[in-house]
């Protein structure tokens, strides 16, 4: 496992590159290690493009990308839009307000309409878990990228997380990574789980027991050989953080409080906030990540959020590189149909 990156490098040098077969990117649960490494390798090349004076390459000339967002978002939508433009694709943005979605058009009809306008790649964010799968099943021609569906998955965020960590740590193999917060309702954490364990990280999940992803862990954690077999659950953050090399703090959605899943915000912050005192228990060069937007003073203290250990801004830049990589990998030959 440790040498997966080296193996890929060898394959690339010999021109025996692993083939990319996917038409859609819906989640990372079925990504092989080699596929993950191919995306990360491609993203590294894309990051080089971002460092240049001329941030434009012609790879997706003549391709159209539509971002179809049924939920508010700034960073993810802008990131996909910018990624598409740097790759020379034409990018169209559709949000639910001001479009036919407001008139009650069904998801299927909107998708078919968009496909009929010869869109090559549809980037979909939807409040319902599974919506991108529905889209992929019903579209014969366009590719679908999941930009976040309900509480299910957010593959591009997880890819940018592991990309960022690889940049800092090299290999993730054996590294202690703590994810703290409302993991159960976090599509980011759920996709992170797949990506991080596949790359060999020792994952510790931390937060209120009511907010642990028991459904995802059930059956898998006690299956020997399953990537989740090594996942630990530790509700005490002081213990979880001991020796951690990476801490991923999740955004606490305040509406969970009403549902009786957690005590007051003050109580939550007291028990699970990533603050300087707790950070002192972690490894000396611990890195802190957060998918944003942050509730400073709730899941993360302002001091930590703006410390040198926080990689939040880098995550945003790397999100661009990872999304460029996926757009590039999805732009291959397409049989004309539909």
């Amino acid at each position: 496992m440790r040498s997966s990156r080296a193996l890929l490098g060898e394959a690339l040098r010999e021109g025996k590159a692993p083939a990319w077969q996917r038409r859609h990117v819906l989640d990372l649960d079925d990504f092989s290690l080699q596929e993950l490494e191919l995306v990360l390798h491609t993203a590294r090349a894309m990051k080089d493009v971002l460092r240049r004076d001329v941030k434009k390459v012609p790879s997706l000339r003549g391709k159209t990308v539509v971002t179809l967002f049924y939920e508010p978002s700034t960073r993810t939508r802008v990131s996909f839009e910018t990624a598409g433009k740097i790759m020379s694709a034409d990018v169209i943005n559709v949000t639910n307000s001001g479009s036919s979605i407001e008139k009650g058009e069904s998801l299927l009809d909107t998708l078919l309409t968009v496909q009929a306008m010869a869109m090559d790649i549809i980037v979909l964010r939807h409040p319902h878990s599974g919506a991108p799968y529905f889209a992929a099943r019903n579209l014969g021609r366009s590719s679908v990228i999941n930009a976040g569906d309900g509480t299910h998955a957010h593959p591009t965020q997880a890819l940018l997380d592991v990309f960022t960590l690889q940049e800092h740590l090299g290999s993730l193999d054996g590294k202690r990574v703590v994810i703290v917060g409302d993991i159960s309702h976090s599509r980011v954490a759920r996709s992170d789980l797949w990506a991080l364990t596949r790359l060999g990280a020792r994952l510790v999940l931390c937060g209120p027991p009511t907010l642990m992803p028991w459904d995802l862990l059930k059956g898998r954690r006690d299956t020997p050989g399953h990537p989740f077999a090594s996942v630990e659950v530790e509700t005490d953050l002081d213990k979880a953080i001991e020796g951690a090399e990476v801490i991923i703090a999740l955004r606490l959605q305040k509406e969970r409080q009403g549902a009786g899943l957690l005590p007051s915000l003050r109580e939550y912050a007291r028990l699970w906030q990533v603050d300087p005192e707790r950070l002192a228990r972690a490894s000396p060069n611990v890195r802190v990540m957060h998918p944003g937007p942050m509730n400073e003073g709730v899941e993360i203290s302002p001091e930590v959020a703006h410390s040198a250990q926080a990689l939040v801004q880098e995550q945003v830049t790397n999100g661009l590189a990872v999304r460029m990589a996926l757009l590039y990998l999805l732009c291959g030959p397409r049989e004309l149909g539909a």
Binding site: H41, A45, L329, C331
Partner: peptide, 21 residues
């Protein structure tokens, strides 16, 4: 110089892994 991103046949032949420039 890696020219993968500048090829004119990406859409026909599919993406190839990119080397560094």
């Amino acid at each position: 110089l890696d020219i993968s991103l500048y090829r004119d046949d990406i859409a026909r032949r599919g993406p190839v892994p990119i080397g560094s420039t």
